[in-house]
Design a protein around this nucleic acid. Structure first.
Lengths: 120, 120
DNA sequence: CGGAATCCTACGCGATACTG
DNA sequence: CAGTATCGCGTAGGATTCCG
């Protein structure tokens, strides 16, 4: 048996953990919101429904993967500003089409789901 | 205070559950694999690491949202064939750019993550 | 202000066994 | 072959409290 080709389909492909970490609703929404450098609570206020804990985790993952930078502002009280890196901007662009697709189709999808549910 | 604009950022936007249901590593990989109608175990064999249970769940979500169709083949033993709908194809195209982005950047991201981890 | 720490619970998911 | 059913664990994530 020849070894499987080295693709995204293999369990040991490095893309697997990356997809798990970066491809989520909140990662996508955080990047969309970051059109300019913003502070923690500013982001939080704009992302209705996110908790502080989850936003912190999401930002850490994005920072760890090089999608955003974290800058401490020496204000009083202290402030922290997050900004997109070039890599983050490229991911944001990819997410943008997903964002657009979702907005365009969410109405149809809801209808389809309701029809599916009725049939059981 | 004026009501927030009716966007994807609102907690009650219909996109929220849709994003949670459709935007996942496995949804993406299943759609990528479905270049032609395929049977359950064929898909499973191509998606290294997925369990039967999770593949079933993923296909149900995709079917419920109208991304794939499920067709029972009257063979013996029985077979089930899954195929992309037009809507599923449009989502697949969006996922394709995410797929390409991931493959292109996964090496850089890994390096960045390792550097981040070392710094603690 | 921007977290970290703790507690607690729901549930995602693997493993396994059974079935039309 | 393509599931469903059940069990059991690990963890994601909400709520709350404390801190530099």
């Amino acid at each position: 048996m020849a070894p499987e080709p080295l693709t995204i389909y293999r369990a040991d492909c490095p893309s697997r953990p990356i997809l798990d970490q970066l491809i989520s609703k909140w990662s996508m929404l955080v990047l969309q919101v970051l059109d300019e450098p913003k502070r923690f609570n500013t982001i939080k206020r704009q992302l209705d429904g996110i908790t502080q804990r989850v936003l912190t985790e999401t930002l850490r993952k994005l920072e760890r993967s090089g999608m955003v930078t974290r800058r401490v502002l020496e204000t009083s009280p202290i402030g922290v500003e997050y900004a997109l890196t070039p890599m983050g901007q490229s991911l944001k662009m990819v997410f943008s089409s997903l964002y657009d697709w979702t907005v365009t189709n969410m109405s149809d999808i809801e209808t389809t789901q309701q029809a599916y549910d009725l049939q059981r």
